[in-house]
Design a protein around this nucleic acid. Structure first.
Lengths: 261, 261
DNA sequence: TCAATAGTGTCTGTCAGACAGTATGTG
DNA sequence: CACATACTGTCTGACAGACACTATTGA
């Protein structure tokens, strides 16, 4: 992106003599809303904080951005530390939270990320987290509509309740116009698996025939992978066709969530 | 958002003894992509940099976030400084750019914003900007589709070409599912004015009868304000009805840009 | 044969694309 | 009157909602 300063006359000399001055110093954190579907419930990975501030509170995993790495790299690093393996799912920037008093210790700007993953192994504790585990977002007081929470819901540390609310709304709306739902299921998956993702995220499952028609008619959303050999349900039933994620990223036209209409 | 530490046992004492240590210090900037429609062209406010680094290059206006203010407050302050008056249009966070070498002086994280405004008075120079003026984005090599630019287009300072490309894509897509287009026109406006906004942002004007039907049938998008008394065009013609922005923020279902289908 | 899960066909209403037509102003 | 701009009516096809139906498995 940025060309070397040598291409710009006089700049190298300027930089050699440059001393930063007069700008307030900030710590910069990368915080993660890691979402997955567990037992049909949209769930988020939270850590129980062991140290002040907000000792004992639930918090989004995260950490400070280091010298020499971007916020995206920091987020990927945190994610790998938290889950114990290189992360291969979907990771995107959400937004940045910069209220002056959002951290009582000092001035910290938090660049928040959303990560979507198929059901992962149980997380292992890392950093200053006393423990880390999955929480169904409904257990935290988040509904499927607004992302706002009733008074009395479990309090999260810092402004993480707002961050998580924004993350949920981002995901709910991205299911409408992208193929992101497929990031929530392990491969290969069935159409019923994929439909359950929409049910968990939106709070209501789309009508099955219409859902099939939409997904199958969207070129490149999913790719058929053959029929499972011997994978009928526990109580019998026709074995489903299996699919993998396709190359398409966008849905045109979008699939609007039921309540929105 | 954050409750006072007094509600959390032991934290006040912890904070009294706390000394920040071990975290890299960053400068945090708020940079602005201020967009408007001028002479039917989507245009962005750019400053010509007077000082190193990138002396002589075009850049997005912006500045460092100060102690005690959020990035949003910093953006609003910069905007007011740049335009010479309190800003009343639409201002939203775009995303944060944090590549380690995006600024050759030091580590600077840039929180970028998009501002939309009706045609403003000519900007007045401020800060380290040698001068500030409006540039049609097509003159900068941005097309109406991808936001990516051909090699050889006028170079912008830092990573601002990427920021501006992201801003343009944000606006193009937000016109689809929000009523944001009305932020680009001064009140009162005509339906033809509003339609020209879509034309300028998308690169092709929507079909007029269909556009009218969509806009007028979306409750709360615009509010009729009576007919202009004596405002026929220079060559005559029927005087148009006048409108103001309505309370609705979202379009359901969305109005998709022509090329997308 | 039954229960259970997978998958299909089809009617209907809504809405966007296309475009021909009407209304109301100025010179 | 011509002309320019504003505005309306309507046909059509694409597609989503709703829901009744068929298919294939295990017990």
């Amino acid at each position: 992106m940025t060309r070397p300063a040598d291409g710009r006359p006089g700049e190298t000399a300027f930089l050699a003599g440059y001393r930063p001055a007069g700008y307030p110093a900030f710590a910069v954190a990368a915080d993660l809303a890691v979402l997955t579907i567990r037992d049909g419930l949209l769930s988020v990975l939270l850590v129980r904080r062991g140290d002040h501030p907000f000792a004992g509170y639930l918090a989004l995993p995260g950490g400070f951005v280091r010298t020499g790495e971007s916020a995206e790299q920091a987020a990927a690093r945190e994610l790998a530390e938290e889950t114990g393996a290189a992360f291969t799912g979907h990771l995107e920037q959400l937004r940045t939270y910069s209220d002056p008093d959002r951290d009582p210790r000092m001035r910290v700007v938090s660049i928040a990320f959303v990560a979507l993953a198929p059901r992962l192994a149980e997380p292992r504790p890392g950093g200053d987290a006393a423990d880390a585990r999955w929480w169904p977002v409904t257990d935290l007081g988040f509904d499927h509509r607004s992302g706002r929470r009733p008074a009395g819901a479990a309090e999260l540390a810092f402004d993480h309740a707002k961050v998580l609310g924004d993350a949920l709304e981002r995901v709910r709306s991205k299911l409408e116009y992208t193929t992101l739902a497929a990031s929530f299921v392990g491969e290969p998956f069935t159409l019923a698996d994929l439909r359950r993702v929409y049910g968990a995220v939106w709070g209501s499952v789309p009508d099955l025939p219409n859902f099939r028609r939409k997904v199958l008619s969207t070129e490149g959303f999913i790719v058929e992978q053959g029929r499972s050999d011997a994978a009928a349900g526990p109580a019998g039933g026709r074995p489903p066709l299996l699919y993998r994620r396709g190359p398409a990223a966008l849905l045109h036209p979008p699939m609007l969530r039921p309540a929105a209409r």
